[in-house]
Design a protein around this nucleic acid. Sequence first.
DNA 1: TGTACATCAGTGAACGCGCGTTCACTGATGTAC
DNA 2: TGTACATCAGTGAACGCGCGTTCACTGATGTAC
Lengths: 215, 215
Amino acid sequence: MRVSRSQAEENRQTVINVASRLFREHGFDGIGLKDLMKGAGLTQGAFYKQFASKDDLAAQASKRALESASGRWSAAATANPKDPLGAVMAFYLSMEHRDEMMDGCPIAALGSDAARQGTDVKASFEAGIKAYLDVLGRMVAETDGKEPQGKAMAILATMVGALTLSRVVNDPSLAQAFLATAVKQVREATFTRKNGRRLGTRSSKPRPQSSAARN
Amino acid sequence: MRVSRSQAEENRQTVINVASRLFREHGFDGIGLKDLMKGAGLTQGAFYKQFASKDDLAAQASKRALESASGRWSAAATANPKDPLGAVMAFYLSMEHRDEMMDGCPIAALGSDAARQGTDVKASFEAGIKAYLDVLGRMVAETDGKEPQGKAMAILATMVGALTLSRVVNDPSLAQAFLATAVKQVREATFTRKNGRRLGTRSSKPRPQSSAARN
DNA sequence: TGTACATCAGTGAACGCGCGTTCACTGATGTAC
DNA sequence: TGTACATCAGTGAACGCGCGTTCACTGATGTAC
């Protein structure tokens, strides 16, 4: 039966939100429209009243996932203005994040899938990644004036790679080591720039099983 | 009709080799057994004479893909003994590698898929990653004595992350920038250690469209 | 404001298709004598 | 070494199933008068 316009729009948003989480959990190919719609309390027939195709939803859900993730970065940064980068790394490079793909970083959760998707999905990722880089760049600029955008790209790469690597191995201590060495490398990269001498002396010894080396 | 034992074993190896490339190209879920077997010149019915399940093949193909990739690293390193790390980065962080998933790094090509696979696939990745780390660790140890294994993990994370990021964006210059900043960051990380002063002065300015910053 | 009607979000069944897996069968290979 | 027979890698059809997509239908919503 028909539903009010605002209700329909609300349903649409719910589907996108649900899909942004279920795609991260199961991959674009790992979850069907039936389960996606069921997650939003609807049946699969309604899908094509809201979206042109599964690819269309994939692009919109990717956009939503990136927005929500970038929001978490900003929130962590503003909640800890003394060490915003440390706050971001504390949740990003944690074992909790490693073990929870559904609410985590979509680049790590869907990266190699997204590389095989079409232009629309990649456009969503591209826009979201630029937002990540803005947030990161602003953090880096505060402690390290030189080329903050280049630094931000390298830092993001290190973080995404470390999370990916930590997820494809069975051994939890190896997984944790990838996360901890990434924290360390990012700290050194951001505090080592000004004429070759380290600015900060923040220790970054990896704590083998703790969830995050917050320093 | 029956086939000689050595022919059967050869066929089996061919299937694993083909699968290691087609899984990287299409993802574990993106290619079916029929096409996998056809790629090896066989029909799908023969599959279960050689493998217990598709997951079984996924684990063996992952192992094969990692072995072949780690072989490429070693080859690049020994071919360029003066700058093995530079040689590895020259192909790993290149636009050619970005645009060719089939013969490229399985961690970048299958990383987020592998994170969702079972213990066997992850065991293949874990073993392969340790081999990568050995090769990298030896390179790092030559120029930078301290904690080569930790450095190797951070470098691998940066490289995997940069390649992944370069593949999920449409804009080729942004893709190239991810690769170039990764080269730069790895260079700085490996040559900046000894009491805070940089050892080498190798320039690492990114060359916007070239395939790799070889320096 | 009230009524008649058009719109369209959502339902649930159906479409064709390809999936992973199973199976009866084939016939060359490998083995026992 | 030669023969009889068991083995089993490979074939191709079939299995049940879930997929993305389409469609006739429903009935509350939105609109025209």
